[in-house]
């Protein structure tokens, strides 16, 4: 190939503007023996690319890989089994723990207290107990009402101030 054309391609190459196709032309040019004198400094560069392209895996790589791929995955199977048993065991343990905790925490009636001892056994006692309960409620309600009225009084006062 004409060395002027190669020169032009080289400029494009070093400017980073060459296409892959143009780069292949350069590689081919420097593979042959008839290289223009002024282009000799670049011979090693393009030959280097060609040499590097030749590095290959060892010849038996493919057969070794195929053996590995097609070997039945024995160990993996066992490990998966063990793993799933561990999961089942963990789940059971968790459930047992959960039941235990729930039972411990359950708020509720203390079965040891004999509530029947507190029950009224004649009408008078029942009446007194009811009246006591109602009195307690009434007292609390009255306190509430008093507080509310106190508050209302203050609001009325404020209202007066504002309107005056």
């Amino acid at each position: 190939m004409d060395s002027n054309k190669i020169n032009a391609l080289l400029e494009k190459y070093f400017d980073g503007d060459s296409s892959l196709e143009e780069e292949r032309i350069l590689k081919q040019y420097f593979q042959q023996d008839n290289i223009a004198e002024d282009l000799l400094p670049y011979k090693g560069l393009f030959q280097y690319f060609e040499v590097e392209q030749e590095a290959t895996l060892s010849a038996d790589f493919e057969s070794r890989l195929m053996e590995k791929i097609q070997a039945p995955p024995v160990h993996k199977g066992i490990r998966t089994m063990q793993f799933s048993w561990m999961r089942v065991a963990a789940a059971i343990l968790f459930l047992v723990a959960l039941v235990f905790v729930v039972r411990q925490w359950q708020p509720g009636v203390d079965k040891n207290v004999n509530w029947s001892a507190y029950e009224a056994d004649n009408p008078e006692e029942a009446y007194e107990a009811t009246m006591a309960a109602l009195a307690l409620v009434s007292k609390k309600m009255n306190t509430g009402e008093k507080e509310t009225l106190k508050g209302l009084g203050k609001i009325k006062q404020v209202n007066k101030e504002v309107h005056n």
């Binding site: 090693g44 040499v51 030749e54 590095a55 290959t56 060892s58």
Partner: peptide, 22 residues
């Protein structure tokens, strides 16, 4: 490591210029 994987023929062809680029 580089000359491994190359044929003896190619290895012999490795010129000084190529080593320099490397």
């Amino acid at each position: 490591w580089r000359d491994e994987g190359l044929s003896p023929h190619k290895s012999a062809e490795l010129t000084d210029a190529v080593s320099r680029v490397r």
